[in-house]
Design a protein around this nucleic acid. Structure first.
Lengths: 328, 328
DNA sequence: CGAATAGTGTCTATCAGACAGTATGAA
DNA sequence: TTCATACTGTCTGATAGACACTATTCG
């Protein structure tokens, strides 16, 4: 990490190795001796609206990829903020949330992307972040002309109507109540590239983010980050079904959640109403203290194709072997 | 991500929004309109030597942190290589391996670190990588004066004798055959910062890498990356015991490994000799085709402290909430 | 031979999933 | 009253872990 390497930096002070005073070294130090490139953060912010998984996107106002959708993000303020801080700042700017609501958002680093040519203008490394948010008010955009909107994730992965327009949320048939909320990508777990025209390499970042999200709610209680402070087990099941894209057995899910220590804790109260067409009032729960689920809530096994190769979080490859399609 | 943001870039061509020709846009484009910072890759390369987990480190030849150990790494060649390629290149340079051996190394991205002040010279973002390697020949160093060596991970996490010297592998009591190889950090899963003086924020990177490694071998067959092409079940168990730091039940482990489809496949041959002090010749196996283990080989449950909070891979936090000690 | 080791059989507690059953409350 | 719904009971198959046992081979 950093610049501890014998190349440019240390060789610049090569004959100077006896200088024990690091302060003096740093005072005489020339930061421009290092190669530099642009560093940005990009946020894959997910939320549930009307039982369907949505992602926060912005519309590009200028080239390249003018008119296409892109992940919200921006430059890291070098030397002034950490990567985590930059991501939190960008998310706040883009959503227009106040501190109270942002408090409930889960934000974690997803990975970095730096292929040459991923931005046609110049070399850029982006550090992608993944955010889980409860249902938020409409995005306000960054304050200038660019539009920010919550877009159904299904529109990104369902190939079809993506081509025609890609207008903000309001301009398309909102899947507000489209029956059960599950069905992100039909359930097959092989990550497909997004088909709605996303700028840059954002399709891959989104695909990686969804993989991570699907895996993360297996062994952490982060599914609760999509819900209000108090929620019912049925609502929690809806989160899993929306993100995994497949229905779960109501009874078994209920018992399983209650059996995992620290996952949820009862509030003692019940929902104001029963189900839409009758039924008892569901009990309300809060998120528990556990940071990890033991035992985990494993996804229903994907229809495995002999040699399993379903979910995987994080890119990986064999070094210098053109294995698995990654050129080295 | 990238530089799709309304700040410097797009505003530089603000009145120009009718310019549909992206080629023309890019020709007239000034890359220096973007803020830039240094980007490096750092490698946490792990291997097993004599039943103990080792990490590849280099000794710093100049300030800052002169004389301290650091992770091998270097600058990303902006625009010329991907992050993965940069990591593979640095690993090859540092280990002096030829392509044939590098072929067997597993390399994956770990995460990025960019706190302000992590390098006293200037702002640097590093993209950390995690590598699993079979027992490799002695590191050769980068070709110049800096020393590169495989250091027992126990020396980093065991507080004690770390202070006194931190010489390369040969200069200290080699734990070549120190009984069973398990015992990285005594078994408690709370990640402690490394105590051998590592430069920069490398202690945290190493801690994150070990967490990732311990989790990764649970649900992937990557433990085989630490072994030769053909191996016995007992050797495979040694990998798990060394990385998890606790002994496993030999019989149950044996049956479990063979029951996971695609984990290992028999070669039909047996080892040349039986155990050191007698016993049948063990059968030899190759790595199978599976990329994920189904079901997974879960770690023995850590002695949980009521509200479990053991293993966790990947940094995470609540936005703008000073929760979990991460300052925002 | 004696002892250590590779590998297997068996028992038990736990867990996931299927199914059925009960009580509640909106229409 | 009807019927969808929240929640619980029970059974079955799979799995993890503990223990015992056999067979092999080095010293």
């Amino acid at each position: 990490m950093t610049a501890h390497h014998r190349r440019s930096a240390d060789s610049a002070t090569a004959g100077d190795s006896a200088a024990r005073d690091e302060a003096a070294f740093l005072a005489a130090y020339d930061p421009h001796a290092f190669p530099a490139m642009a560093v940005t953060v990009d946020i894959v912010a997910l939320t549930l609206r009307g039982g369907a998984l949505h992602i926060l996107l912005v519309e590009r106002g200028g080239p390249p990829f003018q008119g296409a959708w892109a992940l919200p993000g921006g430059f890291v303020r070098a030397g002034q903020e950490s990567l985590d801080e930059a991501a939190a700042r960008e998310l706040a700017e883009e959503t227009g949330l106040d501190a109270a609501l942002l408090e409930r958002v889960h934000l974690e680093q997803l990975g970095s992307y730096g292929d040459p040519g991923r931005d046609p203008r110049m070399p850029v490394v982006t550090v992608a972040y993944l955010a889980f948010a409860p249902d938020l008010p409409e995005a306000r955009g960054g304050g200038d002309a660019s539009a920010a909107a919550w877009v159904p994730v299904a529109d990104l992965e369902s190939g079809a109507e993506a081509e025609r327009g890609a207008e903000p949320d309001a301009a398309r048939p909102r899947p507000q109540e489209q029956g059960p909320g599950y069905g992100i990508d039909g359930g097959d777990s092989v990550p497909r590239p997004a088909s709605l025209p996303l700028a840059f390499d954002h399709p891959r970042i989104v695909a990686d983010a969804l993989d991570r999200a699907r895996a993360k709610i297996e062994y952490t209680p982060l599914a609760t980050a999509f819900l209000a402070e108090e929620f019912t087990i049925v609502e929690l099941r809806g989160v899993y079904e929306s993100i995994w894209g497949s229905p779960l057995h109501a009874g078994n899910f209920h018992r399983k959640v209650l059996s995992v220590p620290g996952f949820v804790e009862p509030t003692g109260t019940t929902a104001a109403r029963g189900g839409a067409r009758g039924g008892p009032r569901a009990r309300l729960y809060r998120a528990g203290a556990a940071r990890l689920l033991h035992p985990a809530l494993l996804r229903p096994a994907a229809p495995q194709s002999a040699t399993s190769e379903p979910r995987d979080t994080g890119k990986s490859k064999k070094v210098s072997g053109n294995v698995s399609g990654v050129k080295v």
